[in-house]
Design a protein around this nucleic acid. Structure first.
Length: 608
RNA sequence: UGGCCCCUAGUGUAACGGUAGCACGACAGACUCUGGAUCUGUUUGUCAAGGUUCGAAUCCUUGGGGGCCAGCCA
């Protein structure tokens, strides 16, 4: 090939959109650019998780890439499962991720915003209920739908099986007049729940079970979170979804693989409505309505976690986690509280690709995307999580020195800060061994190490509790010539330790997290087992009495105009990335470990 | 004894009939005031068999493996 500018590889959906744009298949915006209009259509029956992030980013990313539009639309067609709480959390999470929908009110400051403004531009399928009903009446008139009096059990029995065809409903051949009358009375609430349905008249012998006279409306005398008691019949997903897309003039209706078998039905409904309609609106049925293209891709699966909304709900309700926003949850609210950045989640989504293969991504990929971003933006600080006293026996008692420390070696503009140093410090318990294992180059009797940004110190011994044998204090001497951490004689040390001056340290609680599930695939359980059996008992470790350098007292957790938390993020050197938890109070700092640093030593030590 | 979809290193993902590449991991090394970061190198792959073709990961056939579908859920 002679061209050096190899185009970035497009995934299969981008290829479709690209081809459609070239052909102007979906027409053009007023300025002449080809139209691309996507949407994210969550059902408000749970919190969003990282899998939804992939979908949001796919849909919004496509719209952004092709200069198109993106809708946030709630698919709220089942009042018995849906709640306003979920609407609120979903709107919050989509906004936090960085997707911008049509009509969205963007953040302008920290002044709290009204719920109306927070929801500005958000669409609801329930707003289309009347239009959907009108279309249903049209199908009845066209002889393509009928009212069926069969019970749910009978309907199921007559549907047949995967290998055997179904049987026609005895009500399938009712007259249009009778169907119209019955449908009207269903709508008026004359019939009890479950007594009748409106069904499409397709083919009870179809090999695709979705086409065996599917139910379009069921009777549900339930209070809807938005329409209240206005309706007592509610549309089924298959009937509703294509109409929602059509009404919004969506071009590409992207969904996950399990809807592949539903695409023929998606198309059938739209085709049925368009039958007899014309491009110019002449004729008895009027103008043709838009018919978007449904495209399916593989949903995101991750190791060491679960993505099922039902099971996530179980974890919450069963008290296995503290709530939807527990930092161990794969929910966006959990990841946010844990300290994940929207940038890192987007980066992850861009990284993993879009395809039709059912794959499971190793969770380290997510953690890596996180480290990658945090490494660039997080200021470095020193924090001793499991403190051990270190006394510098030749350092003048009462003397305090302020030493310069670099805030972020990856970002010079982050500048420097001063850290107080004195005779008694805390170091990590793990950084001292009376008898060092092979390859250990931290502190042990006779060994010299560097105290980061401070001095070289040489270990002279330790003090032990006579009863327990536990080391309570380590002693060392320092070399005054190494101030700042460099030796004028060119002498090298292998280890560099972080530390905190005991007299200046602030106390904090630190929560360490590990994978919620110990098993790679929590769903992989023997007969009679449960994914709950794989819950990792060590997924949360709470450390108290941690010692932090004084500058950490400035850490903040802010809330934006929508009440969404934005915690400051830091790297505790040699430990990992941390952020303030909403549980923190002015006199009790609480930190979450977002993700640990890669730990080569741990790997070496484990092998030995 | 149904229909639809899918299968490329350990895990993901490119190659669109013309040299199987990339990322992450793993391993080895360099560098380092974080056993971090960074850099270098190594390793491993087209599910199988036929067919079409000068040439097949790619097209066809058969077989194997996996996913989804029998809600008045989405």
């Amino acid at each position: 090939m002679s061209d050096n500018d190899s185009k970035p590889a497009l995934h299969f959906i981008q290829e479709i959109v690209e081809a459609d744009s070239t052909a102007k298949r979906w027409g053009a915006w007023p300025d002449g650019r080809p139209r691309v209009h996507t949407r994210f259509p969550p059902e408000p029956n749970g919190y969003l998780h990282i899998g939804h992030a992939k979908s949001i980013w796919l849909n919004y990313g496509l719209a952004a890439q092709y200069g198109g539009k993106f809708n946030l639309r709630f698919d709220d067609t089942n009042p018995v499962k849906e709640e306003q709480e979920y609407v609120d959390s979903i709107v919050r999470d989509v906004r936090w991720l960085g997707a911008k929908w049509v009509g969205m009110h963007e953040i302008t400051g920290k002044t709290p915003v009204s719920p109306e403004l927070a929801e500005a531009g958000v669409l609801f399928a329930s707003d289309y209920f009347q239009q959907m009903y009108d279309y249903a009446v049209e199908l009845v008139k066209k002889g393509k739908a009928f009212v069926c009096d069969l019970s749910a059990e009978e309907t199921s029995r007559l549907r047949g099986t995967l290998t055997k065809p179904g049987t026609n409903s005895p009500h399938r051949d009712r007259s249009v007049e009778e169907n119209l009358d019955l449908l009207d009375r269903m709508r008026r609430g004359e019939f009890p729940d479950g007594s009748r349905t409106l069904r499409a008249k397709i083919d009870m012998a179809h090999p695709n079970l979705n086409l065996r006279d599917p139910v379009m409306y069921r009777i549900l005398h339930a209070e809807h979170h938005r329409t209240g008691g206005a309706w007592c019949i509610y549309p089924m997903y298959d009937w509703a979804h294509g109409l929602e897309d059509s009404i919004e003039n969506i071009t590409h209706s992207i969904c996950t693989l399990e809807f592949e078998n539903h695409r023929p039905l998606y198309d059938w409904f739209l085709d049925a409505i368009n039958e007899g309609r014309t491009d110019d609106g002449s004729g008895p049925w009027g103008k043709k309505i838009p018919h978007p293209q449904q495209i399916e891709f593989a949903r995101l699966e991750l190791t060491h976690t679960i993505m099922s909304k039902r099971k996530l709900l179980e974890l919450v309700k069963g008290g296995h986690v503290r709530g939807w926003d527990d930092p161990r949850m794969p929910t966006l609210s959990g990841l946010r509280r844990r300290g994940y950045t929207p940038e890192s989640i987007r980066g992850f989504c861009a990284d993993i690709g879009v395809a039709k293969f059912n794959s499971t991504i190793e969770i380290v990929r997510l953690e890596n995307a996180l480290r990658d971003h945090l490494n660039r933006i997080a200021p470095r600080r020193m924090a001793v999580l499991r403190p051990l006293r270190l006394v510098i026996t030749n350092f003048p008692d009462g003397q305090i020195e302020q030493l310069d420390a670099v805030n972020n070696p990856e970002d010079e503009s982050a500048g420097k800060r001063q850290v107080p140093f004195s005779r008694v410090l805390y170091i990590e318990r793990d950084d001292f061994r009376e008898e060092p294992p092979k390859g250990y180059h931290r502190l042990y009797p006779g060994n010299e190490v560097r105290l980061r940004y401070a001095y070289f110190v040489k270990c002279t011994g330790c003090v032990k509790d006579t009863a327990t044998g536990k080391v309570t204090e380590v002693h060392c001497t320092y070399d005054p010539a190494t101030r700042g951490g460099d030796s004028p004689d060119g002498r090298k040390v292998k280890g560099t330790l972080h530390w905190v001056s005991a007299a200046h340290a602030i106390d904090a609680e630190v929560r360490l997290y590990d994978h919620l599930f110990a098993a790679q695939d929590p769903e992989d359980v023997p007969e009679g087992g449960s994914y709950l059996d794989h819950l990792n008992p060590a997924s949360l470790e709470v450390l108290t009495g941690c010692k932090l350098e004084p500058s950490l007292a400035d850490m903040k957790l802010t809330r934006d105009a929508f009440g969404t938390i934005h915690p400051d993020r830091v790297q505790f050197e040699r430990h990992g990335y941390f952020c303030l938890d909403p549980d923190a109070t002015p006199d009790q700092l609480v930190f979450n470990r977002t993700v640990s640093l890669k730990d080569t030593w741990a790997k070496v030590a484990k092998k030995a």
